[in-house]
């Protein structure tokens, strides 16, 4: 018995760590929905939800319970198996990506060499959930939404990948931990400065990749009702919701890791306040929250893009900028203008 436990111990330890990542993540997702409604509310000079608990603090829990107890309607003539499996397929990759994210120098579940590639490939798997949901629903709105989402995600994946290649070139590694450690030495050493156009390309395509406003034609409430998840109710809808917000968080985390020095303090090397006393995880979370806020801020500010303009932006502007900057980075590395 003892021997078996000893043998299984690594497995149990991993499961424990997974729970330690996923449980706070889901909590953040829940409160991100509240934050979204609050922030957009305040920007529109409303109050946002304020009835459940003090200042609406229990609203996400109420929403969750409501969705949990709702009936899961399965449309007639839908492909039942695919209909049920689609939300799962969209949530699982969103959670899987956290396996390689280093929260601090020590806190990382799987410190694999090709961490960036892992995140990109898992992000690309997320398309299937959306595509299958749209097709299996047997509804034209859902199908339109899925088509739009799918084309958009594939297009912007390319721009996003190219933007990240710049970081890989400068840091010479695909391991997220190594990439962050390359940015040590305070705010001026972060990759966002030499790679600023890349960062812009990354962030714009990240917003498009997660199908958020102003690139939310996949949902397009005013044209195609709710896009790919129009036929989903109850927990199926909740899973899509969770996946969308989990994707937002991972994309923000990736931006922080790649361009903003991950868990490193921005004041490293400053005499007065080096920030070393603050644990790395705090810096990491703060930076991620900043990006999440910008998501909400953009949504409250910008109107929805027209579909052909989204495609034009992705293919004719972002990808050429990214490729051009890759060449420039190559030249800079060749002539030792930036340290590798």
């Amino acid at each position: 018995m003892n021997a078996l436990l000893l043998e299984l111990w690594p497995l149990i330890w991993i499961v424990f760590k997974v729970i330690c990542i996923v449980a706070p993540l889901l909590l953040v997702v829940a409160y991100l929905t509240l934050a979204e409604r609050k922030v957009i509310g305040y920007i529109q000079r409303r109050l946002g939800p304020n009835r459940v608990g003090i200042l609406g603090i229990l609203q996400p829990i109420a929403d969750g319970l409501k969705l949990l107890f709702k009936e899961w309607v399965i449309p007639t003539k839908s492909s039942k198996f695919l209909f049920i499996i689609a939300p799962i397929l969209s949530l699982v990759p969103a959670l899987l990506m956290w396996a390689v994210v280093p929260f601090t120098q020590e806190w990382v579940l799987a410190n694999i060499d090709a961490g960036v590639l892992f995140i990109l490939s898992m992000a690309s798997l997320g398309v299937y959930g959306i595509l299958l949901a749209g097709w299996a629903s047997n509804s034209k709105y859902a199908f339109f939404g899925a088509m739009r989402a799918c084309a958009q995600m594939i297009s912007y994946e390319i721009a996003m990948g190219f933007a990240l290649i710049g970081v890989l070139m400068v840091s010479g590694s695909m391991n997220l931990k190594t990439i962050v450690m390359h940015q040590a030495g305070g705010v001026s050493h972060w990759f966002v400065w030499p790679l600023f156009p890349m960062f812009m390309v990354y962030w714009i395509s990240a917003i498009a990749e997660t199908n958020r406003a102003p690139f939310d034609v996949a949902e397009g409430e005013s044209e195609i009702v709710a896009g790919f998840h129009v036929e989903y109710s109850g927990m199926g809808f909740a899973l899509f919701f969770l996946a969308e917000y989990a994707n937002m968080i991972i994309v923000s985390a990736l931006a922080v890791l790649m361009f903003f020095g991950g868990w490193l303090s921005p004041f490293e090397g400053f005499k007065l306040f080096s920030g070393a006393a603050v644990p790395g995880i705090i810096w990491f979370v703060l930076k991620v929250f900043l990006f999440l806020f910008s998501y909400l801020w953009f949504r409250a500010t910008l109107p929805r893009y027209r579909y052909d303009q989204i495609m034009r932006l992705g293919w004719k502007i972002l990808i050429p900028i990214a490729i051009g900057w890759i060449v420039i980075i190559g030249a800079m590395i060749q002539f030792n203008w930036i340290e590798v």
């Binding site: 590639l117 990109l120 490939s121 898992m122 992000a123 690309s124 798997l125 398309v127 594939i154 994946e157 990948g161």
Partner: peptide
């Protein structure tokens, strides 16, 4: 393989 074939 996943990124290129499965994803795209």
């Amino acid at each position: 393989l996943i990124f290129i074939y499965v994803g795209a």
